[in-house]
Nucleic acid binder design. Structure first.
Length: 259
DNA sequence: ATGACTTGCGCGGCAAGA
């Protein structure tokens, strides 16, 4: 089973790239973030025609997440823990695998900048809610994949220029500590489970020739329960999409599970 | 280097992103 995640930075701006990606890599499940549209504006018909069931949790202008799945899935929208939170940043699906199921979440964790504001407070509170929900999901002892744009640079080697991120909400000690707290529940970072290589990035800013200079960061992650990690075969960063015309500033990350 | 892009909204520039 192939599962991918991609912050697409507007699904309507990126529809041609998205359809090409579905055709080329044929993921069984694709998690999208920053679709930047309401449910009714999502290009559902084109994606269904490509052979996918479409599950959207959108909002006007900002944020928005979706899960595309070849198999019909049972879906829950929103991260539990705060009924006042109206930002569309979490959608979860139970996907059948033949003999069993895999539970997949598409996550768009808040950016949190600038750090001295309520935006950073919201990010940390959101991470606490994610930790609480992940603890519950892990207790189910299922094959679980928490995939998405975490807006967290886990370690210095995950940035080309770590010093430049020292004061940034993506790399502050408190942010990284909460990410470790999540991992320490028993989740594996799929990429680091399979590679210690340097210069593995998933985001390059549009500005200042970041792509041309390979000035990137790794902030898109797939976190796996033990039941999923035990079946992990390969992890790939689809870096070539960043070189296309009108790319997203993020590229997809995908895994193959032997299930 | 003061800024550098790209998006949505909606028609004039602003907010947000990372």
């Amino acid at each position: 089973m192939r599962i991918a995640t991609w912050n697409i930075n507007s699904v309507r701006q990126r529809l041609e790239h998205l359809l090409a990606y579905l055709k080329e890599q044929s993921p069984d499940v694709l998690c999208l973030q920053e679709i930047k549209c309401q449910d009714e504006a999502f290009p559902r018909l084109e994606i269904e025609a490509a052979g996918y069931n479409v599950y959207v949790h959108g909002q006007k202008t900002f944020n928005g997440v979706a899960i595309l799945s070849k198999s019909p899935a049972e879906v829950t929208r929103g991260l539990p823990g705060d009924d006042e939170d109206l930002q569309a940043r979490y959608i979860e699906a139970i996907v059948p695998t033949g003999k069993s199921i895999v539970r997949v979440a598409s996550i768009y964790l808040p950016n949190g900048n600038p750090p001295q504001t309520d935006k950073y407070t919201y990010k940390l509170a959101w991470m606490d809610r994610l930790i609480a929900h992940a603890r519950h999901l892990l207790s189910l002892e299922e094959c679980l994949v928490l995939a998405g744009d975490y807006n967290v640079i886990p370690e210095p080697r995950d940035a080309r220029d770590p010093a430049a991120w020292q004061q940034d909400a993506l790399f502050l000690p408190q942010t990284r500590a909460k990410f470790r707290e999540l991992l320490n529940l028993g989740l594996s970072d799929a990429l680091r489970a399979t590679s210690d290589a340097e210069r593995l990035y998933t985001f390059w800013d549009y500005q200042a020739g970041a792509w041309q200079r390979d000035n990137g960061i790794r902030i898109d992650h797939l976190l796996l329960s033990p039941q999923a990690a035990d079946h992990l075969e390969t992890v790939m960063i689809d870096k070539s999409l960043r070189a296309l015309e009108k790319p997203s500033d993020h590229v997809p990350v995908r895994i193959d599970l032997k299930i």
